[in-house]
Design a protein around this nucleic acid. Structure first.
Length: 351
DNA sequence: AATTCGGGGGC
DNA sequence: GCCCCAGAATT
């Protein structure tokens, strides 16, 4: 059986109608690919539409402030992507005349663009014969070809090599580099899923090594996972009329320069903190009254937060004594600020 | 080669 | 609750 035409024909019939599949604007496709890094389609759709309405072109994105870009990204996670996107837009405006580079190396040189994103944008937007390997492709190939290597560099090279071998050289009918790449990912997302794949619906089932050998549940081999760390924090909701007190996070590190409610981490038994280092700790008087508790997760950290209503004293960085950048934000403007996920979650229950 | 970086949908 | 996602940059 011819793998490529078979899967492309399946894709032509079963492809989901997603917003970024209704355009051939390389900029729009680039935005979608940046948002889709480690993020599910369902989570991306509303962000994609808002983001493109707000920043419809490379130049619009380049001319925006990085704070506005991060604010539009607020809640999507991996905020480095937003800052990289803004930086890349500036490079494109200044060095590429506002057009996304079609050259693979030039595109790869942009911040936030790696092998996957380069392959995806070049193949989908420009029809270039470039491969992609994402989590879906890795799973589909591992099962289809029976790759039982443990995760790591050698397997990655094997996957990219196979992807390069299979990607069509040109477009013809349903078959094209972009369609093939998207078809592989669509198959992984909808049929060849991590758990309980729907092999009955798979157009490649008759060719699948894992299927033939009854190993679909064993492939691909799972990556080693870090042990979760439990973190306790106290979050302050200080209100002054319709306004809420916010603090800006440090310029570097996780969630850099984003706004959050004054947050303090409770040290563990060994006196250690993990997410809110004591040198950035915020001094405030946690009021006696606890509004509610929320759970949150940041990578392998499991956060349990108690949310307190209180009148804030001066909000200060504890170790240095330097005043942190703070502001009183009206409730109605919170959506327009780059607020961390935990703070948004804490506020949701407070009002 | 390992770690770091968010958040949530879906099972 | 846990898994893992249309990854890239940093160490």
């Amino acid at each position: 059986m011819q793998l490529v035409p078979q899967l492309c024909a399946w894709f032509a019939r079963h492809r989901r109608d997603l917003p970024w599949r209704r355009t051939r604007d390389p900029y729009a496709i680039w935005i979608s690919e940046a948002m889709l890094q480690q993020t599910r389609v369902e989570a991306v759709v509303p962000y994609y539409e808002r983001f493109l309405a707000r920043f419809p072109t490379v130049r619009a994105l380049a001319e925006a402030s990085v704070d506005d870009v991060v604010a539009a990204w607020s809640g999507l996670g991996y905020y480095r992507r937003a800052r990289a996107l803004h930086a890349a837009a500036n490079e494109i405006a200044e060095q590429h005349g506002g057009e996304l580079p079609r050259d693979r190396d030039a595109f790869l040189a942009l911040p936030g663009v790696g092998p996957y994103t380069a392959g995806a944008v070049l193949s989908i937007a420009h029809g270039a014969s470039e491969p992609v390997v994402d989590g879906n492709v890795a799973r589909v190939f591992s099962r289809l070809f029976g790759y039982d290597d443990e995760p790591g560099g050698p397997l990655q090279r094997k996957l990219w090599s196979k992807a390069r071998e299979l990607v069509p050289a040109r477009s013809s009918g349903d078959v094209s580099p972009g369609a093939w790449n998207q078809a592989l990912m669509e198959l992984g997302a909808r049929v060849c899923t991590p758990r309980s794949p729907n092999c009955a619906a798979c157009p490649l089932a008759s060719e699948c090594v894992a299927r033939r050998e009854g190993k679909t549940a064993e492939l691909p081999r799972p990556a080693k996972r870090r042990a979760p760390i439990d973190v306790r924090v106290e979050v302050l909701v200080a209100e002054r009329g319709p306004d809420v007190l916010l603090v800006r996070r440090p310029a570097t590190g996780r969630m850099a320069r984003m706004w959050e409610l004054p947050t303090r981490e409770v040290p563990d038994e060994d006196g250690r903190t993990y997410l809110w280092p004591s040198r950035h700790a915020v001094a405030f008087r946690a009021g006696e009254h606890e509004l509610h508790a929320v759970s949150h997760a940041i990578t392998h950290h499991r956060i349990r937060a108690t949310v307190h209503a209180a009148t804030a004293g001066k909000v200060r960085s504890r170790a240095t004594g330097a005043a942190l950048e703070t502001r009183w934000a009206h409730r109605d403007e919170l959506d327009e600020l780059g607020l961390t996920g935990l703070s948004r979650k804490a506020l949701r229950g407070a009002f």
